[in-house]
């Protein structure tokens, strides 16, 4: 099966700190790929590099067969990719409908299609009541939902979703899960990061685990679990399993603070 995402020795330094250390990722098309890791492991940095938001220090990466280091090919890839970046990408002074119209036209989606998709997306994500508000008036969860709507509106072949369920209510979370499952079932690809392992376990077909900038595991979900739960396997890979946790005597014993 052709690869949707492929990296070789992808590395990113921030001054002396190596955030991503020569990782090799291979994500087949039509898979739901969960990219897991503890805080600061390099998940968001990887997504930023793959989507062109951040230049790698070294290494190669191909997205939908396009070399992301080449300016022309990168634009071709971007035309088929939807993204929810870590800090979103909204404009304070636009309403939800305006923002989605803008995104649709940037991806050259016909106007009638944009309108009809917005009419479907806003109620589906519970944003119809607030569509006339500026995004600066939105809560974090609403912004996240709007960013998701923007990511799927051009109907891309590949979705990069950085923590898409963070701050989203349970009802919308269920809607998003169904939406993404259907999206992958048609043969498209999702590359997702999340701290909620239950969701990853329910949705993902493949999982990669990154720890301190290195990919320590990458395989089909069932192969990773090996009959155990994803959480225990993740803790094991992340190096937290069986670790002797430092005891806070003053906290456990209720020592009085002066």
């Amino acid at each position: 099966m052709p690869l949707a995402i492929e990296t070789h020795g992808l590395t990113r330094y921030f001054d002396d700190f190596c955030a991503v250390d020569g990782i090799d990722i291979a994500v087949e098309r039509g898979t739901f790929y969960g990219f897991l890791g503890p805080n600061g492991a390099g998940k968001s940095t990887t997504i930023k590099m793959l989507t062109g938001l951040l230049a790698p220090t070294e290494g190669e990466m191909r997205v939908l067969g396009k070399n992301m280091s080449d300016q022309r090919e990168a634009l071709e890839a971007k035309a088929k990719v939807g993204v929810i970046p870590e800090d979103l990408a909204l404009f304070d002074n636009l309403t939800a409908r305006e923002y989605l119209t803008f995104i649709g036209r940037m991806y050259l989606v016909p106007k009638e299609t944009i309108r009809s998709r917005i009419d479907e997306l806003l109620p589906l994500l519970g944003l119809e009541e607030d569509e006339k508000k500026f995004t600066l008036e939105y809560s974090h969860g609403m912004k996240k939902k709007l960013a998701l709507a923007a990511a799927v509106l051009p109907n891309p072949d590949l979705l990069f979703l950085d923590e898409p369920f963070e701050g989203v209510d349970a009802v919308t979370s269920r809607v998003i899960r169904d939406l993404l499952s259907g999206y992958v079932a048609r043969g498209s690809t999702v590359f997702l990061t999340s701290h909620v392992l239950e969701i990853v376990e329910k949705l993902c077909t493949h999982v990669g685990i990154i720890v301190k900038g290195k990919v320590v595991e990458q395989a089909a979900l069932d192969d990773i679990r090996q009959g155990s739960s994803l959480e225990s396997r993740f803790l094991e890979k992340a190096g937290a399993d069986g670790e002797v946790i430092h005891k806070l005597r003053w906290l456990e014993e209720g020592e009085a603070t002066p």
Partner: peptide, 15 residues
């Protein structure tokens, strides 16, 4: 003045 909205331009396929 685009602030985080500038990501849209970086992510977009527009010339």
């Amino acid at each position: 003045y685009d602030r985080s909205g500038f990501r849209v331009f970086v992510l977009s396929p527009a010339p």
